[in-house]
């Protein structure tokens, strides 16, 4: 079936089977491989993107459910020359090591800062409950998000 969606501000149309996942539309059909798949039970959050402005796990959204939607992925928030503040903070605070969870972590972190008020250490940690990182122990991820939250 044909699906039309806005991806990172660009209108895109793909022709996919009904049982295609949004994450595969992004990775396979559109070549946006920054969104990763780290599990098959919707736990790890590596596939987190924004769907109509909300953080969701793209491995648990069917392509037809995203028909007509606005999708924002890690590729759409900044470039190496013009980083999103969250991307810059992750680099500054050494909030990533292998980088595999990072795109999902950043997309959730942006949602958290945009929608959360009074983000202290505990609130940030709680806000990351849908994202697993095996490298950093989260310490520097929390610092990075805190720095963005504090900067307003």
């Amino acid at each position: 079936m044909k699906i039309t969606l806005q991806v990172n501000g660009e209108p895109r149309e793909v022709d996919v089977a009904e049982n295609t996942l949004l994450v595969d539309v992004l990775r396979v059909n559109l070549g946006l491989t920054g969104t990763h798949v780290g599990c098959d039970t919707s736990q790890c959050g590596a596939c987190t993107v924004h769907l109509d402005g909300r953080a969701v796990k793209a491995c648990t959204v069917l392509a037809p459910q995203a028909d007509g939607a606005n999708v924002l992925t890690i590729e759409g928030i900044g470039t190496p020359d013009e980083l999103h503040p969250m991307q810059a903070a992750f680099r500054e605070c050494h909030a990533l090591q292998c980088g595999f969870c990072t795109p999902g972590m950043i997309m959730q972190a942006i949602d958290l800062v945009e929608n959360g008020d009074q983000l202290d250490n505990a609130a940030i940690r709680e806000g990351l409950e849908g994202n697993l990182c095996r490298c950093t122990g989260y310490h520097n991820i929390v610092r990075a998000i805190q720095s963005v939250a504090d900067a307003g």
């Binding site: 491989t33 920054g34 990763h36 890690i74 992750f90 680099r91 050494h94 990533l96 980088g99 795109p103």
Partner: peptide, 18 residues
């Protein structure tokens, strides 16, 4: 600050499945 981060934070890292 790590130079490899530039690709990982922008989604342009290249893992095997990519």
């Amino acid at each position: 600050r790590r130079r490899e981060d530039a690709r990982f934070i922008t989604g342009t890292g290249r893992y095997t499945d990519d």
